[in-house]
Amino acid sequence: MELILALAIGVLFSSGIWLILRPRSFQVITGFMLLSYAVNLFIFITGKIHINKAPLTLDGVPVDPTRYADPLPQGLVLTAIVIGFATTALYLVVLLGSRGLTGTDHVDGKERDHDE
């Protein structure tokens, strides 16, 4: 379980980093999305990996910490997802604006003089 998650996070991170270094703004935004998935997974596993454990205590049932998962990372992930979503959307708007105004999707707003 740990190995699969670690591998998944690693793959997401490496693809995200590669995409972010590309010159097209669409690639950059895709890279960001991958990076934020990776980060969200990463935050999630800081609360240790549990299977079949509730993050919330139930009314009337005596509280036994071993039976519950850590709720805090889950709360953090939720917030991070929302914020990441909003900032990605904001970047998408700027990206479209840049495409419209400069006529190119290069991140510098202009093509290189001798392209590859």
């Binding site: 990076l35 990463f42 935050i43 990372p73 914020i83 700027v94 990206l95």
Partner: peptide, 22 residues
């Protein structure tokens, strides 16, 4: 474009840092 990309990347680091601190 550049400012937003740089700051989004910084936020990624920020979140990683928070997770590790926790």
């Amino acid at each position: 474009m550049q400012y937003i990309v740089v700051n989004l990347l910084a936020s990624v680091f920020f979140l990683l840092g928070i997770a590790l601190v926790y």
